[in-house]
Design a protein around this nucleic acid. Structure first.
Lengths: 202, 202
DNA sequence: ACCGTTCTAGGTCGATTGTCCTAATGAGTT
DNA sequence: AACTCATTAGGACAATCGACCTAGAACGGT
């Protein structure tokens, strides 16, 4: 088999297992069993576990990037694009209820392990953050676009965390409705007449 | 030394290490080093690691319970009590930025490990949930008290997750302001989820 | 001072971890 | 057919894991 193919299979298997079981709890033997490869053969493709983690994060970054690009192309309205992000909570609800958010849980684990790749994992958040911020700018909220982006990101993280703790499908749907309603209230450009002092009325 | 004292020291050391490094990443040797106890002596107090985890969760449940009781006694206004909970994000901000929320991250880890104690860990969430719900009832929101409680819980989880990923102190303060403003808008009566306007950025 | 219980120290066990090494296999080129 | 080089398999390594065991120290009641 070509090396690139094997390498990709390893990365994808590791990606899934790191998500479902956690980084530390996943051993090379586990991944090897999935890919049906000999344990030792691993070290031809990845010399250390950290190197594999790095490849997994790179893979996730690329996958996220392309997903955002698709959303960017598919919908013309920025508000709809933001909804695509929020809908992720429903699209992936089964996995989220079982394992939480892939990005948030990885960042948390790497933070506790004081792992070098902690910053790189947070870069995935940054992808969403800047994309969301870009959408809010497009709706005419350039003043607080980043704050709004962080707010949406935070909201989805909170929903994922509680959905996993309670394995509550209804809760996810309810909060997605809340986010959607909140977004709808944000759209209409806010300061139509910023610096006008209203005339005093009775 | 009395057994109860040693046992408590072990539990408290394990509590801290499970939080800072994670459950699986913490070995008996690590805890023994903190308590300055021989490794083997452990198994007199706790026969398995799961038994120790159970004791840690029990300890956290008790500590949380008593904290809630204190809040209940200290303030007469339910709205102020809820703010006590929200203020936890600021009181513990240093640890949260470093290790995330103790409850959320533990639940996440146990979920990935498919650990038996997963449900018991989620019980800590339940303590907050029911306490918060109780406060919302006291403000006259019995109809959707539980939903509001879950919303506050979710909000704090989201803030903790992103605060840990970005190690952003400003973000915590800004969102705590948002929660407080939202709470103030909730007190009077029903209108569902009004606008949350993040603080303007430069 | 004695004895029984409680508590502690330290060694040992098998299993598993990440990592390394070497021999064999594969395909492609000459 | 001989050679090259990328890829693979599988064993061996030290270290560490949770768990178990036993001998002895410390303690308290008699």
């Amino acid at each position: 088999m070509v090396a690139a193919t094997t390498r990709l299979q390893i990365v994808e298997a590791a990606d899934r297992l790191f998500y479902e079981r956690g980084f530390e709890a996943t051993s090379f033997a586990d991944i090897a069993a999935v890919v049906e490869l000999s344990r030792g053969n691993f070290y031809y493709h990845f010399r250390t576990k950290d190197e594999l983690l790095d490849a997994v994060i790179t893979h996730r970054l690329a996958r996220t990037k392309s997903m955002l690009d698709v959303w960017e192309a598919k919908s013309e309205a920025p508000a709809e694009r933001i909804l695509s992000f929020v809908q992720l909570l429903i699209v992936n609800q089964a996995k989220i209820m079982a394992y939480g958010c892939p990005v948030g849980t990885l960042c948390n684990e790497l933070a506790k392990l004081d792992h070098i790749a902690r910053g790189r994992a947070a870069e995935i958040f940054n992808l969403f953050r800047h994309w969301l911020s870009h959408q809010f700018v497009a709706v005419g909220r350039e003043a607080d676009a980043d704050g709004l982006a962080m707010h949406v990101l935070m909201w989805s993280q909170g929903v994922a965390a509680l959905a996993a703790a309670y394995r509550d499908e209804t809760f996810i749907h309810r909060e997605v409705e809340n986010i959607s309603a909140w977004l709808a209230a944000q759209q209409p450009e806010p300061p139509a007449f910023p610096e006008i002092v209203p005339v005093q009325q009775s």
